[in-house]
Design a protein around this nucleic acid. Sequence first.
DNA 1: ATATTGACTTGGC
DNA 2: TGCCAAGCCAATA
Length: 119
Amino acid sequence: MQSSATPHHLQAIWDVVSEIPRGTISTYGAVAELAGLPGRARLVGRALRIAPESLHLPWHRVLAAGGRITFPSTSREFIEQRRRLRSEGITVARGRVVCEARAGRPSADARIEQLWKRP
DNA sequence: ATATTGACTTGGC
DNA sequence: TGCCAAGCCAATA
């Protein structure tokens, strides 16, 4: 039997993130909840940090509460995340996603809508 | 075994 | 807007 090296909760988090549609965004907290781990946003951050490159997760679509990018504004990660978001048509200003950019995806299915809960 | 850290969140001032 | 304290908890030191 396989005593998996990857804990169940990490896999659950990666699964949720992999389902975030292109052009839409979510938050660490929301992902944690959908993964069945309410209140454990930090674990989501960690899960993304150690995620195997081979999974090609859309990590840039996961933001901190309020649509903020959590990396230092001068860091390579910050620049890269902002670049990827913009390439999907999402507006980013002052380190955060602009409201209109979040709401502009009414077509997303119900499950995905739960990802973004703060207006 | 104890202390600190961190890709977080919420509430309060 | 911003800083701080709590709550969160696996990984590091």
